[in-house]
């Protein structure tokens, strides 16, 4: 039982980043903009978080350092999202291609900056001031559940909060209604006076902020530094979680938990003797294979927001 609690615990560590990025995807796609660039926005966030925390800990920031890192990560993700929003909403460029560009640019720019800042090094120095696990007083003492759910990094608790908050925002507020209207039928939304451009910008920017937060989470809880393979496909897995979770925050939470489990299993399985017979490569492959199987098998054909992927052209209303 204790082992299972540990497995859930480390699953939630990996899931947190996916939850943030996938929630970001929900806001963007609900507003009608595909965001293949989540990967790049996470990369930007991871880089900025590593740099922000590094300089803050140098300046004697102590416990505040990782939080500064988180803020830097959110800012960097939002910055890349601004580029995405400008190109896809204002210039009406192809959303998929712009997303791919964001991924290429984010990786190139961050590695360029790492080499520039650390004299040609391929990765940032290891951070001392990353997040530590915090046991929530009272709740952490509950047998099994305490260890599984309430003895984790602050970012995981943030994920617990952001899921219902996003659901509330999307389905219980006028803002959410308008955002979804813009993604389902921008022409109709425009007719009743909703500013399509504004809502799409907001949707994409929120997605960038959340993806940046996701990237920061990976650096500050898992890798402790930033290098070329810090993100390695997490952004795309987040998109899969978004589809698997049917564009719904609670669904996203479940899907991200599932993909987080695939990553946690990679480490968990090494405790057992039989793990020695499984080649490493298969363990590395696991999250990607599961993603593919889930998308191909369980989901079948799901329907996303109807207007996602199409630039809004008022003249064709």
């Amino acid at each position: 039982m204790a082992m299972l609690a540990d497995l859930i615990n480390s699953t939630l560590v990996f899931s947190a980043a996916l939850i943030f990025a996938a929630l970001g995807g929900v806001f963007s796609e609900r507003s009608g903009v595909f965001n293949i660039g989540l990967e790049g926005m996470m990369t930007g966030g991871a880089f900025a978080a590593a740099i922000g925390t590094y300089y803050m800990q140098d300046a004697g920031g102590e416990g505040a350092s990782p939080w500064i890192g988180v803020l830097c990560g959110i800012a960097a993700g939002t910055l890349f999202a601004l580029l995405h929003a400008y190109a896809t909403v204002s210039v009406k460029a192809d959303q998929t291609i712009v997303g791919v560009v964001i991924n290429i640019l984010a990786l190139a720019i961050t590695l360029y900056l790492v080499k520039f800042m650390f004299e040609g090094a391929g990765d940032t120095p290891l951070l001392d001031a990353t997040f530590a696990k915090v046991a929530i007083p009272g709740l952490a003492d509950i047998p099994f559940i305490g260890q599984a759910l309430f003895n984790n990094y602050p970012t995981t608790y943030l994920a617990y909060v952001l899921v219902p908050l996003s659901a509330y925002l999307l389905f219980r507020t006028p803002f959410g209604l308008r955002l979804r209207a813009v993604g389902e039928h921008p022409g109709a939304a425009d007719t009743v006076g909703i500013n399509v451009t504004k809502y799409r910008y907001v949707g994409v920017l929120i997605s960038g902020a959340l993806a940046g937060l996701g990237g920061a989470t990976i650096v500050l809880t898992t890798t402790s530094n930033f290098s070329h393979n810090t993100i390695s496909g997490q952004g795309f897995i987040a998109i899969a979680a978004l589809i698997f979770g049917r564009w719904n925050p609670y669904g996203v939470f479940g899907a991200a938990f599932f993909f987080g489990l695939a990553q946690a299993l990679r480490n968990f399985i090494t405790q057992f003797d039989f793990a020695a017979h499984i080649p490493n490569e298969f363990l590395y492959m696991l999250p990607y294979v599961l993603t593919l199987l889930v998308l191909a098998g369980v989901v079948g054909s799901v329907r996303g927001p109807s207007a996602a992927g199409q630039p809004y052209d008022p003249s064709k209303r």
Partner: peptide, 12 residues
């Protein structure tokens, strides 16, 4: 299977 080719290709 209705899997968006971008996602499946990245996984592949």
């Amino acid at each position: 299977r209705g899997v968006h080719e971008v996602i499946s290709a990245i996984m592949l």
